[in-house]
Design a protein around this nucleic acid. Sequence first.
DNA 1: AAAATACAACCGTATATGCGCATATAAGGA
DNA 2: TCCTTATATGCGCATATACGGTTGTATTTT
Lengths: 118, 118
Amino acid sequence: MRDVVKAFKALSDKTRLRILNLLLEKECCVCEVMQTLGISQTSASRNLSALYDAGFLKLRKNGLWSLYSIDQEGMKEYFPDLINAVRKALEGNEVVAMDREHLKKAERIGPGCARQPS
Amino acid sequence: MRDVVKAFKALSDKTRLRILNLLLEKECCVCEVMQTLGISQTSASRNLSALYDAGFLKLRKNGLWSLYSIDQEGMKEYFPDLINAVRKALEGNEVVAMDREHLKKAERIGPGCARQPS
DNA sequence: AAAATACAACCGTATATGCGCATATAAGGA
DNA sequence: TCCTTATATGCGCATATACGGTTGTATTTT
């Protein structure tokens, strides 16, 4: 029960929904998220952690990068319809659509952040 | 977007998930909820309101009773998969199963509360 | 070795949320 | 009209949460 509450709590925040929206597009490192959404590194890191702790994300480390992505398998096991619910809840939203546009450009922005991990 | 956040926020509370579980069984008045879950009238009323404001419930007044139930149509329109996600997230949970048992008995408990509205 | 980079953890503060108590409202009946 | 019942709401308190700034740690680059 606590896990269910935690899961919904993780989803009940605008920033975290925007992050989830990015990750529905592709795997991202912390600084891609922070640049794309225009939030602080602190905020990006903390909110990614919250989504991770709630069981929505998986983490892959590659050198300096912490690469977060949707944990498709975990989601299907514990919250079968939830990821779809989120996707549909966000579709058509303006902010979220703009974020997706920004994400495309963010790949080349910043001091080395969006370089491909070697 | 604010609506989506509000919806998930409404779901990110143990009491409200338990209430939703009861309403998945049947339409309930405030005092059935408060008795079944063993919470205060204030808490029952306010948490039902929160779920109502988030768009999950519909309200039918009958005499003194405020009868809340799942707004199936509204849910399908705005959050197509969410009600299923909630249902599956709660299934197998002990507290929630016990609540459903208590609900059956609650119909005859209390000073006139669970009498059928005239 | 030193500097730069990516990220996480800690700290203080502002705001949000949940709860109980008391009270208000609203409907029905004597 | 007064009383009871069912529900809603204002208020204050305790706690939770979000955020920015700073610091710490690990890794890569120079």
